[in-house]
Every structure is written in C-alpha cells, then in structure tokens.
Design a protein around this nucleic acid. Structure first.
Lengths: 138, 138
DNA sequence: ATCATACTTGCAACACCGTTGCATTTATAA
DNA sequence: TTATAAATGCAACGGTGTTGCAAGTATGAT
C-alpha cells in the first residue's frame, strides 16, 4: 500500500498543503530531475518564492535532493527512504543528456571509489556523466 | 624556457593586453581554482564585465576551464597543453574543501571509468569530491 | 612611423534568480 | 471553535550573466 502525499509530508515534518502535495506528486511521477521552471509551468499561477521555499523545505526534510548538472540551472529529484532530516545519502551517478537536456539519477550504476591522495578526507562525491541518453539515440 | 604571458595569449589567438596578461599570470601562480571575486580583488579597479569577457575568451580559447564545484560560484583554473580552441580535455577529479572552500584540480588521481547502462553514450564526466583538503587537517 | 581596421574595454542597462521581511491566509492542536 | 504556529503572496534587494554601444587600444599594411 502506497502512502499518500499527505502522509509522506507529515512523516517528514511538513504540513500538507495543496501546493506541497502537488509538488510532491510531480516529483513522484517524474522520470527525470526537475528545474524550478518546469515545476512552475504545472501550476496555473504559483509564486516563484513559494516554490523556492517549498523546494528548500523538501530538501531540508530529505524529500528531494538538489542536482547540479553543470548547466547552472539547479534541478531536483525525489530522494529515497534512506534520506532523513538534513542528512542526504546520494551516492549515485547523475546523467545529463546533452541532447534533450534532461538529467536523471542512475541509481543502479556502480558508484566508483575515488582514490584521493593521503591527507585528504572525503565527505561525499558528486558525479555527473554528460552524453546522450537512451531516448536520444535515434 | 618558459613562454611569456604575451606569447601564450598570442598562441591562443588572443591579443595581449595588460589585463589579460595579469589575469593569465594570476592563474599560473594559483594553486587552486579562482572565482571571479578573487580575481577582481587583485586589481585596483577592474570592470566586472571586462573580467567576465576575459574569462569567457580564455575559456573559449582553451586557456582555462570552468569548474562547477557545487557551491554555485563558478571557479576557473588554467588548462593544460592538450586543450585547444573550444575543445577541452579535462578528465581529472576536482576536490572541493568544505573547510577552506578552495577547489583544486587533482590531476594525478586516477579518473574512474563509469559503467553506464547500454543505450547511453558518454561524452564527458565531471567528478567533484567534497571533503577536507590536506591543509585543513590540523 | 602612420594609419585604417578590428579588437578590447568601460559603462549603462536588462533579465533572472536566490534570498529576506512582512502582512495575510491556512493548518493544527487545545 | 479558537489560539497559535506555519505557509503563502508580494515587495524588495543584491548578485551575476549577458548584450549594446561608444571610446580606447593593438595590429598589420602601407
């Protein structure tokens, strides 16, 4: 049995509101990371600041994670269950298609171990692969 | 024998000017990637647009490469000889220190091979390791 | 050396985005 | 139902990428 958007929001310490529920559903139905613009377009008229704060809250509560794919336009994607309040766990590779410009999470791709020189301490690593996605091979 | 800043600029199709020469020297003497702000501070008074265009020109001509370390603040570092006009070759890992906020190129770290699912085509890959650099271990 | 030309610089200006403050509206728990 | 805390909408500020244009500068030909 799937948990409703309301439940999910409450479980993460967020009040369920129409906007938040819809934003959350958009992330759940998305097969790629979403930029602010694309989210805004799904609403009749939503204040960009409200959306900004919604995304910020979602991120802080571990519902979504921000992806910097190098385009300069931040994108967001839903997290998995192992993400909690302000403590993200996202050791997965992101793929950015240079053709359709979509960015996706490659959860199943093995995350490589980077051999950093002694003296350095690794906290977390970000990997973005740029290329052509499966849908853009023609 | 080292080539002068003038020579380097000319060799990349850029007219040597006082500003460009100084910017180029700043990159050569830097042990880390430089954000616009840090470059601006090295001048008495430089127009931010001029610096913006200088960096853009340098990047297009293969003198420097832009690094997106996830902070949202673009940084730049000098390229190596294998970079030419609009054709960058930077398969190296970048390290971003969460303590001193410096970003460096780890040229000697082995760049891992990412096993992307069939159907995907890899053009280039960006890797940023976040953590603590050698200078920040105390 | 001079000079015409192309490039560079500096300034104004615009757009976009992150961010904060504040008043109003909405959700929640007593 | 109601008091309280949180969410929303709007104004506003600052930073930055970007372009246009006029003035200054480097360059190659004469």
């Amino acid at each position: 049995m799937e948990s409703t958007a309301k439940d999910t929001l409450r479980n993460h310490g967020l009040r369920p509101t129409p906007i938040r529920e819809k934003v959350w559903e958009l992330f759940n139905n998305a097969s790629k990371a979403l930029p602010n613009k694309e989210l805004e377009m799904q609403f009749e008229n939503i204040d960009r600041i409200t959306l900004y704060r919604t995304l910020k809250a979602f991120e802080e509560k571990g519902l979504i994670h921000k992806i910097d794919d190098g385009t300069g336009v931040p994108k967001y994607a839903s997290c998995h269950d192992d993400c909690a309040d302000g403590h993200h766990q996202h050791e997965h590779v992101h793929f950015h298609c240079l053709n359709c410009l979509s960015t996706t999470c490659l959860e199943d791709v093995q995350f490589p171990k980077i051999d950093i020189p002694p003296g350095y301490l690794t906290e977390n690593t970000s990997i973005v692969v740029n290329g052509r996605c499966a849908n853009c091979q023609n």
